Amino acid sequence: NNDALSPAIRRLLAEHNLDASAIKGTGVGGRLTREDVEKHLAKA
């Protein structure tokens, strides 16, 4: 659900052409954090 993404996370996802649903969020309520996105990028 993109409504739960902060603007910074949306921008980071867009810059790397990532789909938020492909990344498991570890923030409050399962929200994506910058660390989640960076860890996903490091794996790729």
Rank of each mutant, 00 (worst) to 15 (best):
N1K: 07
N2W: 05
N2F: 06
N2T: 14
D3Q: 12
D3A: 10
D3R: 08
D3N: 11
A4G: 13
A4Q: 13
A4I: 13
L5K: 03
L5M: 09
L5Q: 07
S6F: 05
S6V: 05
A8M: 07
A8E: 15
A8Y: 11
A8D: 15
I9T: 04
I9S: 01
I9N: 01
R10Y: 08
R10S: 07
R10V: 14
R11S: 11
R11A: 15
R11C: 06
R11T: 12
R11E: 15
R11L: 15
L12Y: 05
L12I: 06
L12R: 04
L13Y: 02
A14D: 10
A14K: 13
E15Y: 14
E15Q: 15
H16P: 00
N17Q: 10
L18F: 04
L18M: 07
L18R: 00
D19Q: 11
D19K: 09
A20Y: 06
A20S: 07
A20Q: 07
A20M: 06
S21V: 07
S21F: 08
A22M: 14
I23K: 00
K24Y: 07
K24W: 07
K24D: 06
G25E: 01
G25W: 02
G25T: 04
G25A: 10
T26F: 03
T26Y: 02
T26Q: 04
G27A: 04
G27N: 02
V28T: 10
V28S: 08
V28F: 11
G29R: 06
G29P: 02
G29L: 07
G30S: 04
R31N: 08
T33I: 04
T33H: 02
T33Q: 04
T33R: 06
R34Q: 13
R34A: 10
R34F: 15
E35A: 12
E35V: 07
E35S: 09
D36G: 00
V37F: 04
E38M: 14
E38Q: 09
E38P: 00
K39R: 15
K39H: 10
L41C: 04
A42V: 08
A42G: 08
K43G: 12
K43T: 13
A44F: 15
A44I: 15
A44L: 15
